[in-house]
Amino acid sequence: MSKRDIEIRTADGTAKAGLFGKGATAGVILYMDAFGPRPALDEMAERLAAEGYAVLVPDLFYRDAPYGPFDAKTAFTVDESKMALMAMVGGTTQEMTIRDSGAFLDALAAEGVTGPIGTVGYCMGGARALNAAASYPNRIKAAASFHGGNLASDAPDSPYHHVAAIKTRVYVGTAGVDRSFPPQQSARLAEALRSAEVDHIIENYVGMAHGWCMPDHGAFDVAGAERHWKRLTVFFAETLKQG
Protein backbone atom coordinates (compact mmCIF):
# COMPACT_ATOMS: atom_id res chain seq x y z
CA MET A 1 0.00 0.00 0.00
CA SER A 2 1.28 3.45 -0.93
CA LYS A 3 -0.34 5.23 2.02
CA ARG A 4 1.54 8.00 3.75
CA ASP A 5 0.14 9.60 6.91
CA ILE A 6 0.30 13.39 6.88
CA GLU A 7 -1.00 16.23 9.02
CA ILE A 8 -2.81 19.23 7.56
CA ARG A 9 -2.94 22.54 9.38
CA THR A 10 -6.41 24.10 9.21
CA ALA A 11 -7.98 27.19 10.68
CA ASP A 12 -9.33 25.06 13.53
CA GLY A 13 -6.43 22.74 14.27
CA THR A 14 -4.61 19.85 12.66
CA ALA A 15 -6.35 17.22 10.56
CA LYS A 16 -4.75 13.86 10.03
CA ALA A 17 -5.01 12.46 6.52
CA GLY A 18 -3.90 9.54 4.43
CA LEU A 19 -2.17 10.31 1.13
CA PHE A 20 -2.10 7.60 -1.51
CA GLY A 21 -0.21 7.40 -4.81
CA LYS A 22 3.23 8.62 -5.77
CA GLY A 23 4.29 11.07 -8.43
CA ALA A 24 0.80 11.89 -9.70
CA THR A 25 0.04 15.45 -10.78
CA ALA A 26 -3.76 15.01 -10.79
CA GLY A 27 -5.41 14.57 -7.43
CA VAL A 28 -8.59 13.46 -5.72
CA ILE A 29 -9.98 14.37 -2.31
CA LEU A 30 -12.05 11.49 -0.94
CA TYR A 31 -14.62 12.75 1.58
CA MET A 32 -15.37 10.01 4.08
CA ASP A 33 -18.68 8.57 5.18
CA ALA A 34 -19.90 8.82 8.76
CA PHE A 35 -17.69 6.05 10.12
CA GLY A 36 -14.41 7.91 9.66
CA PRO A 37 -11.02 6.92 8.22
CA ARG A 38 -10.45 3.16 8.42
CA PRO A 39 -9.05 0.26 6.39
CA ALA A 40 -12.09 0.16 4.08
CA LEU A 41 -11.48 3.77 3.01
CA ASP A 42 -7.77 3.04 2.62
CA GLU A 43 -8.66 0.17 0.30
CA MET A 44 -10.86 2.43 -1.80
CA ALA A 45 -8.25 5.20 -1.93
CA GLU A 46 -5.58 2.73 -2.95
CA ARG A 47 -7.72 1.48 -5.82
CA LEU A 48 -8.33 5.03 -6.99
CA ALA A 49 -4.63 5.89 -6.69
CA ALA A 50 -3.86 2.94 -8.96
CA GLU A 51 -5.69 4.86 -11.70
CA GLY A 52 -2.95 7.49 -11.59
CA TYR A 53 -4.08 9.99 -8.95
CA ALA A 54 -2.77 11.31 -5.68
CA VAL A 55 -5.67 10.56 -3.33
CA LEU A 56 -6.15 12.44 -0.07
CA VAL A 57 -8.42 10.98 2.63
CA PRO A 58 -8.73 13.59 5.40
CA ASP A 59 -10.29 12.99 8.79
CA LEU A 60 -13.27 15.33 8.76
CA PHE A 61 -13.89 14.60 12.44
CA TYR A 62 -10.43 15.77 13.55
CA ARG A 63 -11.96 18.33 15.91
CA ASP A 64 -13.35 15.41 17.95
CA ALA A 65 -10.23 13.23 17.90
CA PRO A 66 -9.56 10.81 19.38
CA TYR A 67 -12.72 8.82 18.71
CA GLY A 68 -13.85 5.38 17.59
CA PRO A 69 -13.03 3.21 15.84
CA PHE A 70 -16.51 2.37 14.62
CA ASP A 71 -17.80 -0.77 12.95
CA ALA A 72 -19.74 0.30 9.87
CA LYS A 73 -22.00 -2.75 10.13
CA THR A 74 -23.11 -2.21 13.72
CA ALA A 75 -22.31 1.36 14.82
CA PHE A 76 -25.84 2.66 14.23
CA THR A 77 -27.43 -0.30 15.99
CA VAL A 78 -25.67 0.35 19.30
CA ASP A 79 -26.99 3.35 21.24
CA GLU A 80 -23.61 4.52 22.53
CA SER A 81 -21.83 4.50 19.19
CA LYS A 82 -24.90 5.85 17.38
CA MET A 83 -25.06 8.84 19.71
CA ALA A 84 -21.34 9.50 19.33
CA LEU A 85 -21.53 9.34 15.56
CA MET A 86 -24.61 11.53 15.29
CA ALA A 87 -22.98 14.12 17.52
CA MET A 88 -19.88 14.24 15.32
CA VAL A 89 -21.85 14.30 12.07
CA GLY A 90 -24.05 17.10 13.36
CA GLY A 91 -21.15 18.98 14.89
CA THR A 92 -19.00 18.86 11.77
CA THR A 93 -20.86 21.39 9.66
CA GLN A 94 -20.71 21.87 5.92
CA GLU A 95 -19.16 25.27 6.58
CA MET A 96 -16.35 23.65 8.56
CA THR A 97 -15.59 21.15 5.80
CA ILE A 98 -15.75 23.82 3.10
CA ARG A 99 -13.23 25.86 5.06
CA ASP A 100 -11.06 22.81 5.63
CA SER A 101 -11.17 21.98 1.94
CA GLY A 102 -8.99 24.97 1.13
CA ALA A 103 -6.33 23.47 3.40
CA PHE A 104 -6.82 20.05 1.77
CA LEU A 105 -6.23 21.56 -1.67
CA ASP A 106 -3.15 23.38 -0.40
CA ALA A 107 -1.83 20.12 1.07
CA LEU A 108 -2.11 18.40 -2.30
CA ALA A 109 -0.32 21.31 -3.97
CA ALA A 110 2.46 21.10 -1.38
CA GLU A 111 2.87 17.42 -2.33
CA GLY A 112 3.44 18.34 -5.98
CA VAL A 113 -0.12 17.80 -7.19
CA THR A 114 -0.27 20.66 -9.67
CA GLY A 115 -2.82 19.25 -12.11
CA PRO A 116 -6.61 18.98 -11.99
CA ILE A 117 -8.32 18.02 -8.73
CA GLY A 118 -11.47 15.97 -8.34
CA THR A 119 -13.64 15.26 -5.32
CA VAL A 120 -15.68 12.21 -4.41
CA GLY A 121 -17.76 11.72 -1.31
CA TYR A 122 -19.82 8.94 0.22
CA CYS A 123 -22.79 9.30 2.58
CA MET A 124 -22.13 12.52 4.54
CA GLY A 125 -19.15 13.14 2.25
CA GLY A 126 -21.32 13.37 -0.86
CA ALA A 127 -22.70 16.81 -0.09
CA ARG A 128 -19.25 17.94 1.00
CA ALA A 129 -17.72 16.88 -2.32
CA LEU A 130 -20.30 18.96 -4.20
CA ASN A 131 -20.07 21.95 -1.87
CA ALA A 132 -16.28 21.92 -2.23
CA ALA A 133 -16.70 22.16 -6.01
CA ALA A 134 -19.02 25.13 -5.58
CA SER A 135 -16.64 26.83 -3.14
CA TYR A 136 -13.41 26.28 -5.10
CA PRO A 137 -14.55 26.33 -8.74
CA ASN A 138 -11.16 27.36 -10.07
CA ARG A 139 -9.38 24.47 -8.37
CA ILE A 140 -11.80 21.54 -8.48
CA LYS A 141 -12.56 20.14 -11.92
CA ALA A 142 -14.81 17.16 -11.16
CA ALA A 143 -17.14 16.30 -8.28
CA ALA A 144 -18.88 13.00 -7.55
CA SER A 145 -21.27 11.84 -4.83
CA PHE A 146 -22.38 8.30 -4.02
CA HIS A 147 -25.31 7.68 -1.68
CA GLY A 148 -24.89 11.25 -0.51
CA GLY A 149 -27.60 12.52 1.79
CA ASN A 150 -29.57 15.79 1.78
CA LEU A 151 -28.13 16.97 -1.53
CA ALA A 152 -31.25 19.07 -2.15
CA SER A 153 -32.87 19.60 1.22
CA ASP A 154 -34.25 22.89 2.52
CA ALA A 155 -31.17 23.41 4.70
CA PRO A 156 -29.19 26.48 3.59
CA ASP A 157 -25.97 24.46 3.35
CA SER A 158 -27.50 21.86 1.04
CA PRO A 159 -25.52 21.71 -2.24
CA TYR A 160 -28.49 22.43 -4.45
CA HIS A 161 -28.55 26.02 -3.17
CA HIS A 162 -25.01 26.52 -4.46
CA VAL A 163 -24.90 24.73 -7.79
CA ALA A 164 -24.80 28.01 -9.73
CA ALA A 165 -21.21 28.39 -8.48
CA ILE A 166 -20.14 24.98 -9.83
CA LYS A 167 -18.02 25.26 -12.96
CA THR A 168 -17.18 21.61 -13.40
CA ARG A 169 -18.75 18.25 -14.20
CA VAL A 170 -20.87 16.53 -11.57
CA TYR A 171 -21.81 12.88 -11.12
CA VAL A 172 -24.36 11.77 -8.53
CA GLY A 173 -24.97 8.07 -7.89
CA THR A 174 -28.03 7.44 -5.73
CA ALA A 175 -29.22 4.36 -3.88
CA GLY A 176 -32.43 2.91 -5.29
CA VAL A 177 -34.30 3.77 -2.10
CA ASP A 178 -32.65 6.19 0.29
CA ARG A 179 -34.50 8.21 2.92
CA SER A 180 -31.62 10.69 3.05
CA PHE A 181 -32.05 11.51 -0.65
CA PRO A 182 -35.66 10.80 -1.71
CA PRO A 183 -36.97 11.20 -5.28
CA GLN A 184 -38.22 14.71 -4.57
CA GLN A 185 -34.71 15.84 -3.72
CA SER A 186 -33.28 14.10 -6.77
CA ALA A 187 -35.72 15.97 -9.02
CA ARG A 188 -34.98 19.25 -7.26
CA LEU A 189 -31.22 18.78 -7.67
CA ALA A 190 -31.57 17.82 -11.33
CA GLU A 191 -33.60 20.95 -12.05
CA ALA A 192 -31.11 23.18 -10.23
CA LEU A 193 -28.16 21.67 -12.12
CA ARG A 194 -29.94 22.02 -15.46
CA SER A 195 -30.91 25.62 -14.73
CA ALA A 196 -27.31 26.43 -13.79
CA GLU A 197 -26.09 24.72 -16.98
CA VAL A 198 -23.86 22.35 -15.04
CA ASP A 199 -22.65 19.31 -16.98
CA HIS A 200 -24.06 16.52 -14.82
CA ILE A 201 -25.33 12.97 -14.49
CA ILE A 202 -27.69 11.71 -11.79
CA GLU A 203 -27.87 7.92 -11.88
CA ASN A 204 -30.19 5.75 -9.82
CA TYR A 205 -28.66 2.43 -8.74
CA VAL A 206 -31.89 0.46 -8.55
CA GLY A 207 -31.83 -2.25 -5.91
CA MET A 208 -28.90 -0.74 -4.01
CA ALA A 209 -29.23 0.47 -0.42
CA HIS A 210 -27.52 3.41 1.26
CA GLY A 211 -23.88 2.44 1.78
CA TRP A 212 -23.66 -0.08 -1.07
CA CYS A 213 -20.21 1.14 -2.21
CA MET A 214 -18.43 0.62 1.10
CA PRO A 215 -16.74 -2.79 1.46
CA ASP A 216 -17.26 -2.93 5.24
CA HIS A 217 -20.87 -1.70 5.25
CA GLY A 218 -23.84 -3.97 5.83
CA ALA A 219 -25.39 -2.70 2.58
CA PHE A 220 -22.29 -3.47 0.49
CA ASP A 221 -23.13 -5.00 -2.88
CA VAL A 222 -20.32 -6.42 -5.00
CA ALA A 223 -21.94 -5.85 -8.39
CA GLY A 224 -23.21 -2.41 -7.45
CA ALA A 225 -19.82 -1.41 -6.07
CA GLU A 226 -18.08 -2.51 -9.26
CA ARG A 227 -20.58 -0.50 -11.31
CA HIS A 228 -19.76 2.50 -9.12
CA TRP A 229 -16.04 1.99 -9.74
CA LYS A 230 -16.55 1.84 -13.49
CA ARG A 231 -18.57 5.04 -13.49
CA LEU A 232 -16.15 6.87 -11.18
CA THR A 233 -12.95 5.91 -12.98
CA VAL A 234 -14.36 6.84 -16.39
CA PHE A 235 -15.72 10.12 -15.01
CA PHE A 236 -12.36 11.09 -13.54
CA ALA A 237 -10.42 9.89 -16.59
CA GLU A 238 -12.51 12.08 -18.87
CA THR A 239 -12.23 15.09 -16.57
CA LEU A 240 -8.88 14.99 -14.81
CA LYS A 241 -6.41 13.24 -17.08
CA GLN A 242 -4.46 15.48 -19.41
CA GLY A 243 -2.96 14.72 -22.78
Results as ranks from 00 to 15, higher is better:
Ala142Asn: 12
Ala142Trp: 07
Ala142Ser: 13
Ala143Cys: 02
Ala143Tyr: 03
Ala143Leu: 07
Ala144Lys: 01
Ala144Trp: 04
Ala144Arg: 00
Ala144Pro: 01
Ala144Phe: 03
Ser145Tyr: 02
Ser145Met: 05
Phe146Ser: 13
Phe146Lys: 08
Gly148Asn: 07
Gly148Ser: 11
Gly149Val: 11
Gly149Ala: 10
Gly149Asp: 05
Gly149His: 12
Asn150Lys: 14
Asn150Ser: 15
Asn150Gln: 15
Leu151Phe: 09
Leu151Gln: 04
Ala152Thr: 08
Ser153Val: 09
Ser153Cys: 07
Ser153Met: 05
Asp154Met: 09
Asp154Asn: 12
Ala155Leu: 11
Ala155Gly: 05
Ala155His: 12
Ala155Ile: 05
Ala155Ser: 12
Pro156His: 02
Pro156Leu: 02
Pro156Ser: 07
Asp157Tyr: 02
Asp157Ile: 02
Asp157His: 07
Asp157Lys: 01
Ser158His: 03
Ser158Leu: 03
Ser158Thr: 05
Pro159Asn: 03
Pro159Met: 06
Pro159Ile: 04
Tyr160Asp: 13
Tyr160Lys: 13
Tyr160His: 15
Tyr160Cys: 13
Tyr160Ala: 14
His161Trp: 08
His162Leu: 00
His162Tyr: 03
His162Cys: 00
Val163His: 10
Val163Ala: 09
Ala164Thr: 14
Ala164Met: 06
Ala165His: 12
Ala165Pro: 00
Ala165Leu: 02
Ile166Glu: 05
Ile166Val: 11
Lys167Ser: 10
Lys167Gly: 09
Lys167Ile: 05
Thr168Gln: 11
Arg169Met: 08
Val170Arg: 03
Val172His: 00
Val172Tyr: 00
Val172Pro: 02
Val172Gln: 01
Gly173Met: 11
Gly173Phe: 03
Gly173Thr: 03
Thr174Pro: 02
Thr174Leu: 10
Ala175Ile: 07
Ala175Val: 10
Gly176Pro: 08
Gly176Leu: 04
Val177Trp: 00
Val177Pro: 01
Val177Leu: 07
Asp178Met: 04
Asp178Trp: 10
Arg179Leu: 14
Arg179Cys: 09
Arg179Tyr: 12
Ser180Trp: 01
Ser180Arg: 13
Ser180Glu: 07
Ser180Ile: 06
Ser180His: 09
Phe181Ser: 12
Pro183Thr: 04
Gln184Lys: 14
Gln184Tyr: 03
Gln184Ser: 15
Ser186Val: 15
Ser186Gln: 15
Ala187Tyr: 09
Ala187Arg: 14
Ala187His: 11
Ala187Leu: 12
Arg188Met: 03
Leu189Pro: 09
Leu189Asn: 10
Leu189Met: 08
Ala190Gly: 15
Ala190Lys: 14
Glu191Arg: 15
Glu191Cys: 11
Glu191Met: 15
Glu191Tyr: 13
Ala192Gly: 08
Ala192Lys: 13
Ala192Phe: 00
Ala192Glu: 08
Leu193Gln: 10
Leu193Lys: 10
Leu193Ile: 11
Arg194Gly: 12
Arg194Tyr: 12
Arg194Phe: 12
Ser195Glu: 14
Ala196Thr: 01
Ala196Lys: 02
Glu197Cys: 05
Val198Thr: 07
Val198Phe: 02
Val198Glu: 01
Asp199Lys: 11
His200Val: 00
His200Asp: 02
His200Arg: 04
His200Cys: 01
Ile201Tyr: 14
Ile201Met: 14
Ile201Gln: 15
Ile201Glu: 15
Ile202Arg: 03
Glu203Cys: 01
Glu203His: 07
Asn204His: 12
Asn204Ile: 14
